[in-house]
Design a protein around this nucleic acid. Structure first.
Lengths: 334, 334
DNA sequence: CTGTTAGCGCTTTCAT
DNA sequence: ATGAAAGCGCTAACAG
């Protein structure tokens, strides 16, 4: 492993000359420059980034912290990939960390192991955020929390998304709509229950329809049992609105009951385009632009690391993408 | 940011005493130990990992390199998560890198930015591997390549998997089986065409059935069009074998033709349990234990980093998991 | 039981 | 246009 010292010796010059020749921060005579270039080539020298980071006093790494990355969820993947891409373009490395306690998270920063953080799957009441808020360490969150004072966040307009989902169905003529809603206690972390609730209430105020609400965890199994209950308590349902990771469960329930989508039952979700393109039939959804959001979050963090003072709450707008799961209610009103 | 120097000054002792007190590598008197503990607490000192890594000459980071992480693929996610978990248990950080050229990959190591590598989505002919093979840098690959000489690899028995998939169908009585096979040229990277091909041939030798082969890219769209072609060229097909990311496409084609699975057409795949539990109906598959494989690969790498000389090719065994997509061929022989 | 000192590899100030 | 030397924060060999 050749160091700058070796190169200097080989080229018969001093360390600093090698450094300046390589960095171009100082004029170096033609002849010396060539000797150095030759030595670099012969020794296959590359500056040790460990030394550089030591000297700079920063690690040029940022971390992404999720309470625990649920692999059932492609969402985490999208965020990771997008964040890693954005970071590496700025010559930062992304380290990923899971299930870290607030104190461990703090240590990663105190350590100088990480220069900054991206927090995902933030909860309404989030110990990690409170721990970080007291410090000066730069971090950005994807998601929201109770008190946004002084925080930099990137989130999605879940309220508008739910509103638009119901709106689309009502405008198609649906009168009885099932709602697979997040259970306030259990799913506070996955999506913001509060905003989803508000979007639903706004839709109820604005439009006239009968809503059948089934609260559940936003998992495949949750979606399945919620749909089963929905269809049992109100068989006249002609459409369903849902979010989270419930779609496979919902479709499974409909499939097993031989209810064709969208002919006999429409479905609108809040999901990433990824997931929406995966279901059969393809899910009509208000797409969550997770990759875009992660990219923005990462860029904001990098700006912070560059010394800019940023305090910004970004909310990505909701827009319905019509795919294959909605249609007017069937005439026979099952 | 308090350093060991600050602590030493505050406690009125030397740096090394602080160090030894904290590391426990040398006996320290009760009284001094307490003064140091107090200083540490007051200054909120944590050893800078940058300094530690500098001193140790290693970054305590490993990298995972994928040509480009396809987010459509949950496989990458599973590997990432499992690798990150295993690494962090050994106090290593996992950095993720995408679409790096061989020379960039090498630089990450020369740099001392990374201590070792995990390569995923290796191809039959893989420039990254050849570049690394010439060096002494520790790396482990998930997947295989042409020449395994001196390499450490963890892979799955795709040959056995395909064999078992056909075997299961033949034993149920299927006579005409469609095979959505990887296109040798395009999908060399995604799964090992060679082994899949061999498994297929072994099944043909051992059992008597008619096979209709459709080669394609192993994507959703590939699966869809392959199935369309399969059903057009041979409507008597009563079962399909497939791998890769084709299942949504295959099921979409069957669904649109109103062919019920498994009543009218069985389907056996090579997939992770994740994916298999996601489809409707749940996919009967030879499960690829990706998480286990990643964990093993990471552990092997960590052992290498600890100085052990490991050269090992591990092949995980294939085993069929029966879920909901297979049944005997329907009596009416569509 | 404790202290002094050197050195990892880089960048940069100060000196020539 | 070039060189000498210091220092980032840690660890460890050497010395008492």
């Amino acid at each position: 492993m050749a160091t700058i010292k070796d190169v200097a010796a080989r080229a018969g010059v001093s360390q600093s000359t090698v450094y300046y020749a390589l960095s171009g921060k100082r004029p170096i005579s033609q002849e010396v420059r060539q000797r150095i270039a030759a030595a670099v080539a012969e020794l296959d020298y590359t500056a040790s980034s460990l030394g550089q980071r030591m000297r700079a006093g920063r690690s040029y790494s940022i971390g992404m912290i999720a309470p625990q990355l649920p692999t059932s969820d492609t969402a985490a993947m999208e965020m990771l990939v997008s964040t890693a891409e954005t970071a590496s373009q700025a010559d930062y490395t992304l380290g990923i960390f899971m299930g870290q306690t607030p104190s461990k998270v703090l240590r990663l920063l105190r350590n100088q192991f990480l220069d900054g953080l991206i927090l995902v799957e933030t909860t309404h009441v989030d110990a990690r955020i409170e721990a970080l808020r007291k410090t000066k360490y730069p971090f950005v969150m994807i998601g929201r929390t109770q008190n946004l004072e002084g925080l930099t966040t990137v989130d999605f307009d879940f309220e508008g998304a739910i509103f638009k989902a119901f709106e689309a169905l009502v405008q198609l003529g649906h009168k009885t709509i099932g709602f697979v809603a997040p259970n306030a206690t259990e799913d506070l972390n996955v999506e913001n229950w509060f905003h989803i609730q508000r979007g639903f209430e706004r839709a109820r105020e604005r439009y006239c329809f009968e809503a059948v609400v089934e609260k559940t965890r936003l998992t495949i199994e949750g979606g399945y049992t919620a749909t089963e209950k929905l269809l049992e308590t109100e068989p006249r349902i002609t459409a369903i609105v849902a979010s989270g990771n419930t779609f496979t469960g919902i479709l499974r329930s409909l499939y097993s009951r031989r209810i064709r989508v969208p002919d006999e039952c429409s479905l609108v979700g809040i999901a990433t385009a990824q997931v929406a393109e995966w279901t059969i039939p393809k899910l009509t959804s208000v797409d969550i632009p997770l990759r875009e959001m992660s990219k923005i979050a990462t860029q904001l963090l990098l700006h912070k690391l560059a010394g800019k003072d940023i305090q910004e709450q970004i909310i990505m707008p909701a827009q319905l993408v019509v795919r294959e799961t909605i249609a007017p209610p069937s005439a026979k009103l099952r």
